[in-house]
Structure formats: structure tokens, C-alpha cells
Design a protein around this nucleic acid. Structure first.
Length: 485
RNA sequence: CGGGCAGUAGCGCAGGGGUAGCGCGCUUGGUUCGGGACCAAGAGGUCGUGGGUUCAAUUCCCACUUGCCCGACCA
């Protein structure tokens, strides 16, 4: 049979699509830019969603739900916000067979409708902080879409908080960025760089936007989560004031933060290989699959033996699939389960049965080992932990290997390869350099090389002495430059 | 939104103004079974949608739609 997955080296985009379709994570739909998430893809989302939700609650947040439709006039109350979103809005003009008096926007984000309601809920400093989050779908009419990474409709969570003081709101913004950072690294095994966005890249309506940025296997950056300090912009637009401790009337300070189904795309592109999907055990629907290997004459005994192994693993809390189907051969099953990204394959055949063994194979390294069946549960725990760790460290090593400190524009030109800008052959990665903070430098970089400032890493801002690597003027920030999704 | 390519069985593709083809997959039976097995018999199609030309359109023409690549735009 022909290869199902296009190798990364041949066509990275096609590789990504092949993995999604062949591993049955998602499919296309009749509606432009909208995808169908299939059970195998949705289970990844469910697992990461539940873990993220747990971490939000751990930091004092509560879930709620606001309407899908937003009166058009609400969007217009915050000038930058409407300007930023108007090109990608879907608007409902008719309903119930009649034209609506006021069109309803299908939410691209819920900031406006939430703040219109917060106005009613906040009167006193005693009502603060308000720490709410919602899990929802949003619609942004994107011109160019890609499965999981940029779709017209997507699933996400949006946290919207209100605070008494600026310091508290800034602290919340940073706290949630840190929640995302740890979550990405611990749970998704995606190392990220956390930092502040440049003014040109920040959220429409925010004072400051922060992001976590990950490096994909094609060395492009992917924004994997954002946290915004909104200042008093939305409070002023929606007139949300509270009576302070000293009796004065003040506008509240706000934050918002979000992460979306795009994370599923990030997971695919960070870990997978030419055989298919590779998943960290935390995210895998099945942590392991047991494949019995039998002939007709020994089928019953081998199945019994293999099922015993499954039972022991399940009793130890493992999520285990059992593939006892007799219409396909073992080799076919091996390839199939590798494509699906199951972290460990357990083979149980007549030879293993005779010796009381099983064969355990790691998806991430392909390493095979023979293990006593009695020790399979302990070995499984050990291997799952090792896989989780290996995927994280492999991704980290890849990013480090493809990150370069740059001192001047010539080094940037060489690093990103001017003549190959925008093609799949472009070299590059993350360039780490000093920046004057000027919009012109940023614009020139984008025009010349399609490279943007991803963010300004918090842990590098102690060292900004020197000159801007783009223009040679005195530097103000240390930034990460990269091509991005 | 502009340029290019594509849409024919579940998937990959061929074909061609006159009753629709191949490979894989699928179903049934049998033999196989430690890295994508084999034999036999079957099932499966309004040829993306709508209109036009024609005695006749899946084929020619127009519009629309969906996908991929490039560009512009962009949380």
C-alpha cells in the first residue's frame, strides 16, 4: 500500500494535513473554513480543556456563559476593538423571517457583551475581583484557514476579570500567562517563551498583550495562548465604575486571557513524525494498545493471555485499547496505532506467552523491550513518564538548537535567508536580539523577510544594553523575531 | 479578497458528447497471522451544485461552491 503520510521533508503543510485526516482528528465541512472535529481529535481537546479548567479553578476562577449573539452597537463602543475585529465579523441581519432592527454579531470574542453585564454586577470594591471564565465557540471570518490553526469557527476559553487596582489587574494578567506557560510545558510538553507583545501585535483594545510562543518543527512560531491587561479601556467604554474604599468612584481594571483549539494544532506540529501522530501520554485517549498476535490454532489461548494483560493494566489505572480484530494482520495494526499516536504498544504473541512476557514498544523512540507480564504495569508507568519527559525535552532541544542570538541586520538576513523568504526552504527559527521599540523597524522586518516580533521574553529584559539589531539605535527591549502561523 | 491547481465509488486516480472504469479499501466465505497477507464471490456512483448549448452533457460554455498552494489581510 502507498504511503499515507507525506514526509515532512517533502511538504510540511501536506504532512500536517495528512496526519489530521489519517489519524481521524478532524475533517472538512461544507462550510468554508469550518472544520468537523472527530472523536479522536475532540478527545485531545477534552483532555487539555479539563486540565486547563482545573488550573483556572485552582487560581480562583469560576465558569459562566454569555450569549453567542452580540448587538452590533456593543462592538462599536470600544474604538480600537471594533476597528480590529470589523473585517472578520459574521453578522445576523434576519431572524424569525424578518429583518432585525439591530443586526446581531456572532461573537468574535465576548469582551463587549461581558462588560455590558459586568456594569450591573459591579458597584462596590467589595464586588471585586470578579474572576470569571467561559468556554465557548467564536467566529472570525478568516480569509485563509488551516485545520485547527486558523478556522472560521473555533472553540476556546476566554477569561474576563475585573479588579480594584491596576496592580491587581497586571498581577492577574501575569498570573494567567504563567498558568498557560506551565500548562503548555507540563501537560502538552510544548516549551514556550512567555513575554509581552509589541504594540503592533497586541489585542484590539488592550493596553498590553502577553503571549506564549512555541516553535513548530518547521521552525515557525505559533502563539499558543494570550493574556491581556486591558487597563480601564472596557470599563470606560461600558461605564463600569465602583465605589472605592475611600468612597470615591473609580473605573475598574480589567484583564482577559484565552487559549483555543489551535493548541491541538500546536500539539500535532510539535511532536508528530512521518509515521503519524505522536501524543504526550497526558493527552492520549489510549495510553497504550495491546495487540495480540495469534494463528487460528492458538487464537483462544493468546487472546486469553493478552486480555489478562489488558485487565492488569486497566486495574492499575491505565487507559488501554485492545485490538483483537482478526481481519487485519499485526503489521497493519502496528502502523495504524502508530498513526493514531498511541504512546505505547504492547505485543502479546505465542512466544511471549510461552515465556510469560510481553513486548513493549515506545511510540516516541520506536524502542522495543521484552518485559515480564507481571511487571508490565510498573513498566508502563515508567515508560509513560519517560515518554512525557522525552517529548518535552526533545521539543526544548529543537527550539534551543534553532534559536540564535543576533546582533545586527546582516545576521538577521543570513539567519532568515532573504532570498528564500516565504518558501518552505527558508532557514530560520527564533532570532533573539535587541530592539529599539520602533514601529518602523518592525514594519521593515516584516516587509523584507515576513518576520515579526513574537514577543519580548520577560526573563531576558534585564539585559537590554546595546543597540537595536535592526537599525543600530539604542535598544529598549530584548525580542524574539520569527516567522509565524 | 487577487493569482494558480483541483473536485468522477470510502481513499487515490484514469477516462470521455451516446447505459461509468482501475487500484486500494469495504461485505461474505476460506486460507493466513511477530512490521501494512492471499484466493474466490459481491456491494457501492444523481461524475461538487445550479443554469445554458445539444436529439442527447459526467464530458462543451457560464455562474456558484469546497479544498490545496502563492499573495494581500489578520487574533
Amino acid at each position: 500500500m502507498a504511503e499515507k503520510i507525506t514526509p515532512r521533508s517533502v511538504d510540511y503543510s501536506q504532512w500536517y494535513i495528512d496526519i489530521i485526516l489519517n489519524a481521524k482528528l478532524a475533517d472538512y465541512s461544507p462550510v468554508k473554513g469550518c472544520m468537523v472535529i472527530r472523536p479522536r481529535g475532540f478527545s485531545i481537546w477534552e483532555r487539555l480543556r479539563d486540565e486547563l479548567d482545573r488550573r483556572f479553578k485552582e487560581t480562583g476562577h469560576e465558569n459562566c456563559y454569555f450569549p453567542l449573539f452580540i448587538p452590533e452597537s456593543y462592538l462599536k463602543k470600544e474604538a480600537e476593538h471594533v476597528e480590529g475585529f470589523s473585517p472578520e465579523l459574521a453578522v445576523v441581519t434576519h431572524a424569525g423571517g424578518e429583518e432585525l432592527d439591530e443586526p446581531l454579531v456572532v461573537r468574535p470574542t465576548s469582551d463587549t457583551i461581558i462588560w455590558s453585564i459586568y456594569k450591573n454586577w459591579i458597584q462596590s470594591w467589595r464586588d471585586l475581583p470578579l474572576l470569571y471564565n467561559q468556554w465557548a465557540n467564536v467566529v472570525r471570518w478568516e480569509k485563509r484557514t488551516r485545520l485547527f490553526l486558523r478556522t472560521t469557527e473555533f472553540l476556546w476559553q476566554e477569561g474576563h476579570t475585573a479588579h480594584e487596582t491596576k496592580a491587581q489587574a497586571v498581577e492577574e494578567t501575569e498570573r494567567m500567562l504563567e498558568v498557560y506557560r506551565k500548562f503548555a510545558e507540563e501537560y502538552l510538553c510544548i516549551p514556550v517563551i512567555a513575554g509581552k507583545k509589541s504594540d503592533a501585535e497586541k489585542f484590539a483594545g488592550a493596553v498590553d498583550t502577553y503571549s506564549i510562543e512555541a516553535m513548530m518543527q518547521d521552525k515557525k512560531a505559533l502563539q499558543a495562548g494570550t493574556s491581556h491587561f486591558l487597563g480601564q479601556n472596557f470599563a470606560k467604554a461600558f461605564d463600569v465604575q465602583f465605589q472605592s474604599r475611600d468612597g470615591g468612584l473609580e473605573y475598574v481594571w480589567a484583564t482577559s486571557w484565552g487559549a483555543s483549539t489551535r493548541l491541538v494544532g500546536a500539539i500535532i506540529m510539535t511532536h508528530s513524525d512521518d509515521k503519524g501522530l505522536v501524543l504526550p501520554p497526558t493527552l492520549a485517549r489510549e495510553e497504550m494498545v495491546v495487540v495480540p498476535i495469534f494463528k487460528t490454532e492458538n487464537k483462544a489461548e493468546v487472546l486469553t493471555y493478552a486480555e489478562g494483560v489488558v485487565k492488569a493494566l486497566k486495574a492499575d489505572g491505565r487507559r488501554v485499547a485492545f485490538d483483537g480484530d482478526d481481519s487485519t494482520k499485526p503489521g497493519w495494526k502496528f502502523a495504524e496505532w502508530e498513526m493514531r499516536g498511541v504512546p505505547i504498544r504492547v505485543e502479546a504473541g505465542p512466544k511471549d506467552m510461552a515465556d510469560g512476557n510481553v513486548v513493549m514498544v515506545r511510540r516516541d523512540t520506536g524502542e522495543k523491550q521484552v518485559v515480564k507480564a507481571a511487571e508490565a504495569t510498573a513498566k508502563a508507568r515508567e515508560l509513560l513518564a519517560a515518554i512525557q519527559e522525552n517529548l518535552r525535552e526533545k521539543a526544548r532541544a529543537f527550539r534551543i538548537a534553532n534559536t540564535k542570538r543576533v546582533m545586527d541586520y546582516n545576521e538577521i538576513l543570513v539567519f532568515f535567508g532573504k532570498e528564500t523568504a516565504g518558501t518552505g526552504d527558508a532557514p530560520g527559527g527564533f532570532a533573539d536580539g535587541l530592539w529599539c521599540g520602533g514601529r518602523d523597524c518592525e514594519a521593515k522586518l516584516k516587509a523584507d523577510l515576513k518576520v515579526t516580533i513574537r514577543n519580548m521574553p520577560a526573563d531576558l529584559q534585564h539585559d537590554t544594553s546595546g543597540v537595536c539589531c535592526l537599525c543600530g539605535q539604542p535598544a529598549k527591549h530584548r525580542a524574539i523575531f520569527a516567522r509565524s502561523y
